[in-house]
Simulated assay, not measured.
Amino acid sequence: MWARHLKANMTEEHSGQSDSAGTLGGALAVQQDQIRGLESTVVGLQGQIQSLAGQINQLTAMLNASQQAAAPAPPTPAPEPVVFPVTSPPDPQASSPAPEKFSGDSGDCGGFLFQCALVFNRSPRLFDQDDVKISFILRLLTGRALKWAETRFPNCQQFGCSFNEFISEFKTVFAAEVDEVQDSRRLLALRQRGRRVADFAIEFRTVAAAAGWEQRALKTVFFQALDESLKDELMRQQEPATLNEFIALAIRIDNRLRVRSRNRPVGPLASRPPPPERSFPRPVESPLPPPEPMQLGRVRLTPDEREKRMTSKLCLYCASAAHFIKNCPERPKE
């Protein structure tokens, strides 16, 4: 009896200890899982913090670049971030090259305004106000254009007009009046005159753009403006459908002809038979007048000698200057 009771008590105590150990192990496992979850959460938060720090650094660098471009003096450098500095690429809109100065020549007005528009489009944040655009253009004026600006805008702080009104007035003063009739006449008067077709095509396209002709008509005018030798070569080719293709074909043929002309060997000219001699009839000699007799053996004077004595007023018989043949003492009386 006593042995059985003792064995039963020992069994119950051992089973209680086993249950406590199992409960403690389960609690530890749950806590470990919670710790792992917290660790993963902390790692995710650190990644987000690093990403936000990089974005803040990039925005700070862009703001500094904009301030440096807008202000004449360099701004105070911002404090460098401590955590994970990020280098942002340079802003392409921070600065733009300025066009050449405009002196007031009407032929350069369109190109000058075109270059200014390119600068405005490249940096829209810097030129977001009309006064800034007008000031930019006025700083590039020189010569008579600058004199006009000084008279037109005596107050540099207030221009009193919008940018569109300024451009309209600027074109009225300096831009040449568009004359399509004159441009068409210039187009018809163009000639290649031995130039390279590539160079001539640039002038032709420029004048053609101003004339505003239809493409088929421009192709005909371009053909008529070429040199005759190039026309002959183009007539042997199939004519392209568009003007650009036709100009490209003419350029290729012209380049080949010029290369061939440079590479052609220069040798001695082929021997040609001499031209046949032409026989001319001899002129018929007119009968000479009978010469005058001379004292030595009665030799008659030649026509040249007779002319010489008559011109010099000499005696035809003895060639003396003291008398004439009528009173010559040496002439025989008979």
Rank of each mutant, 00 (worst) to 15 (best):
K101Q: 13
T87S: 13
Q93T: 15
I56C: 08
A78M: 03
L59P: 00
S95H: 12
P75G: 06
P77Q: 08
N57I: 00
T87L: 11
Q55T: 08
D91Y: 02
V86H: 06
A71E: 10
T76S: 14
P75M: 09
P74F: 10
P85Q: 04
D105M: 12
S66V: 02
S95A: 11
P90Q: 06
Q55D: 08
A65H: 01
S88E: 08
A70T: 10
D105T: 04
A78Q: 09
V83C: 04
E100Q: 10
V86D: 00
V83E: 08
S103Y: 11
N57R: 01
M62H: 08
Q68A: 12
V86E: 02
P79C: 03
F84H: 09
L63N: 04
P89C: 06
A65I: 05
A98G: 02
S106W: 07
Q93F: 06
V86K: 10
Q55E: 14
P72H: 00
A73Q: 14
P92S: 04
F102R: 00
G104W: 01
A71S: 13
T76H: 08
K101T: 07
P97Q: 12
D91I: 00
Q58H: 09
A78T: 10
P99S: 02
P79T: 09
T76K: 15
P77R: 08
N64C: 06
N57C: 15
P79S: 11
P97E: 09
P97H: 10
Q55V: 09
S66I: 02
F102W: 03
P85Y: 00
A78S: 07
S95I: 08
P77M: 11
N64E: 14
S96I: 06
M62F: 11
A94W: 00
A98K: 14
P99I: 00
E100P: 09
A71K: 07
S88D: 04
Q93C: 13
P81C: 04
A73F: 12
P75I: 05
Q58R: 13
Q93I: 03
P99Q: 01
L63I: 04
A70G: 04
A98Q: 10
N64W: 06
A94N: 02
L63C: 01
E80S: 15
A73R: 12
I56R: 15
L63T: 05
Q67E: 11
V83D: 10
S88L: 09
V86G: 01
A69P: 01
T60Y: 02
Q55A: 13
F102L: 02
K101A: 10
A65C: 09
A71R: 14
Q58W: 06
P81V: 10
P75K: 05
A70K: 14
P75H: 08
N64A: 14
E100F: 07
L63Q: 11
V83F: 13
P81D: 05
P81T: 07
S95V: 15
